[in-house]
């Protein structure tokens, strides 16, 4: 095994080009588990800790460019207003120690369906900035997940950042685990209202081979809101709409039975989470003007 320690982003890209099988390691919270438990012996480890820009974020216009290694703790602390769904998801990641090290780049690189950031990224919408010595490309998040632990990156590419749309409406994230902290998702759900575009986006985790959106549910809800003029009236959401939305989310999943939970429970739980998160976001949308949204988008803690 060889440990590559590039001092700059350019060096990192060059190293990845030279050793396409090199495994990038930033927070280490996935890679080191595999090494400690002898599940993986890469020829090269590519350390990204020395590349400062990966730990930085910029808010410009209506997007946030979030460095791949910005730790979840920082997202919780500093980006709650801009990225409320991702901030909530960040808070459910493992433990404080892990949140201090891990970042979105790791979740994307590993592309496990159980990664906590995925449902929030899918719901919020955005693009993955994939870079190689050949150049930069922005991969829409919807096209990023390709299979179980497979993503759209080319072997010579590294994730530099994600470009995320600043929230224009309430967002929520909810995850079922069998413990009240430090738990891997049995399944998870992210929801974002986009009042500016009159759309709704969702994300489902741990209930299909990849993180997915529940597009039928999104379209149904957007249409229902439109038809009833609810975006403008901020009126009460009809329970039947919430129920059908929940059913459609549930139906969008394609889960399996595994040691963490059953397929049927996952479908059921996704429906409950969809209904609840819709209730929370809609109530928030009803009760607030846009500039107030930022402060109340999360429950305490």
């Amino acid at each position: 095994m060889e440990f590559l320690r590039p001092a700059s982003w350019e060096e990192a890209l060059a190293a990845k080009a030279e050793h396409p099988s090199a495994v990038p390691i930033a927070g280490g919270t996935d890679v080191m588990v595999e090494i400690n438990f002898d599940h993986r012996r890469p020829e090269h480890l590519l350390d990204l800790n020395r590349i400062a820009e990966l730990q930085e974020w910029e808010v410009a216009g209506d997007t946030v460019r979030l460095g791949a290694s910005v730790p979840y703790t920082k997202i919780m602390e500093h980006l709650r207003a801009e990225l409320p769904g991702l901030a909530l998801a960040s808070h459910t990641v493992a433990s404080p120690q892990i949140r201090n090290r891990g970042g979105v780049g790791g979740n994307l690189g590993t592309a496990s369906p159980a990664g906590d950031a995925h449902p929030a990224l899918l719901a919020g919408g955005g693009e993955v900035e994939a870079v190689s010595v050949r150049g930069t490309r922005l991969i829409p998040i919807d096209d990023f997940y390709k299979g179980v632990k497979r993503n759209a990156l080319e072997p010579d590419e590294l994730i530099r950042a994600v470009h995320l749309k600043k929230a224009t409406g309430p967002q929520q994230f909810s995850k079922v685990g069998t413990r009240n902290a430090m738990v891997i998702a049995v399944c998870a759900f992210g929801l974002a209202l986009h009042p500016d575009a009159r759309t709704v986006r969702t994300g489902i985790g741990s209930a299909a081979p990849t993180p997915i959106r529940a597009t039928t549910a999104e379209e149904f809800l957007a249409a229902a809101l439109d038809e009833a003029g609810l975006w403008e009236s901020r009126g009460v959401l009809p329970p039947a709409v919430a129920r059908q939305f929940a059913d459609l989310v549930s139906g969008a999943a394609n889960p399996i039975d595994d040691v963490r939970g059953t397929a049927s429970y996952r479908r059921h739980a996704l429906g409950v989470m969809a209904r609840r998160t819709l209730g929370w976001t809609w109530e928030q949308y009803r009760g607030t003007e846009q500039d107030e949204l930022d402060d109340r988008s999360k429950p305490c803690a």
């Binding site: 440990f3 320690r5 280490g28 090494i35 480890l45 800790n49 090290r101």
Partner: peptide, 14 residues
């Protein structure tokens, strides 16, 4: 920053 030292590669601490 508190971290799990088991998940930090030795080379990253240089």
């Amino acid at each position: 920053v508190p971290v799990c030292s088991c998940l930090v590669a030795a080379g990253q601490v240089q």
